[in-house]
Amino acid sequence: MSHPVSALGVAVLCASGYVWYVPAIMDVHAGADRPGSRRLAALACLTGWGTGVLLVPLLLTSAPWAVSGSFAALGAAVSGGQAVRSRVRRRTEAREEAQRWATLGRPRAAAGCDQP
C-alpha cells in the first residue's frame, strides 16, 4: 500500500475516534476534579490517538516503513504503559476508598476510651 493511502486511512481513523479522545481531553482538563487513575487513563488514550495523528505527516513524507512502524510501536508502548499505571493506581484508589468506608462503618468507642 502506498504511503499517501496509508496516511489517509490513519487520518480518517483518527478523525472518527473523537468519541474516545474528546472525553479524555475533558478528563485531563478537569484536573483535580477527577481521580488520578482516570487522568492517567485519559493521558493513555490521548497518547495513543496522538501517535496516530503524528503518524500521518510521517507517512506523507514517505519515510521508510521501518521508521513509521517504529514510531507507531513506540507510541503504542508508551500508551500501554500509561494504561497499566492507570489500572494499578485505580486498584490502589479502590483499596484506599474501601479502607475509608470501613473506618466510617466502625462502631463508636465508648466515652472516655482511648481506642481508635
Rank of each mutant, 00 (worst) to 15 (best):
G9C: 08
A11P: 00
A11Y: 00
V12M: 11
L13D: 01
L13I: 00
L13Y: 00
L13H: 01
L13K: 01
A15I: 05
A15C: 13
A15Q: 06
G17I: 03
V19A: 11
V19D: 08
V19N: 09
V19S: 07
W20H: 05
Y21I: 12
V22K: 02
P23I: 13
P23K: 10
P23S: 14
P23A: 15
A24W: 01
A24D: 05
A24G: 06
M26R: 08
M26Y: 07
V28A: 03
V28Y: 02
V28D: 03
H29S: 12
A30K: 05
A30F: 08
G31S: 08
G31C: 12
G31N: 11
D33L: 13
P35S: 15
P35E: 12
P35K: 04
G36S: 07
G36H: 04
G36T: 06
S37Y: 10
S37T: 06
R38W: 05
R38N: 09
R38K: 09
R38D: 08
R38T: 13
R39E: 13
L40P: 00
A41I: 03
A41M: 12
A41D: 09
A42Q: 03
A42R: 00
L43D: 03
T47G: 04
T47C: 06
G48F: 09
W49K: 00
G50S: 10
G50Y: 06
G50D: 11
T51L: 08
T51F: 07
T51N: 09
V53Y: 15
L54T: 01
L54W: 13
L54A: 07
L54R: 08
L54V: 02
L55R: 01
V56S: 01
P57M: 15
P57T: 15
P57K: 15
L58M: 15
L58A: 14
L59I: 03
L60S: 00
L60M: 10
T61C: 15
S62G: 14
S62P: 02
A63R: 15
P64K: 14
P64N: 15
A66E: 13
V67Y: 04
V67W: 05
S68E: 14
G69T: 05
G69S: 10
G69E: 06
S70L: 05
S70N: 05
F71E: 08
F71C: 02
A73D: 00
L74F: 14
L74P: 02
G75F: 11
G75L: 07
A76R: 04
A76P: 00
A77L: 11
A77G: 08
V78H: 01
V78W: 03
S79R: 06
S79D: 07
G80S: 11
G81F: 12
G81Y: 03
Q82C: 05
Q82L: 12
A83E: 07
A83T: 04
V84M: 07
V84F: 08
R85C: 12
R85F: 07
S86D: 06
R87C: 12
R87T: 09
V88Y: 10
V88I: 13
V88W: 11
R89Q: 14
R89Y: 04
R90M: 04
R91C: 12
E93N: 11
E93M: 13
E93H: 13
R95H: 13
R95W: 11
R95K: 10
R95I: 10
E97T: 10
E97V: 04
E97M: 13
E97Y: 08
A98G: 03
A98D: 05
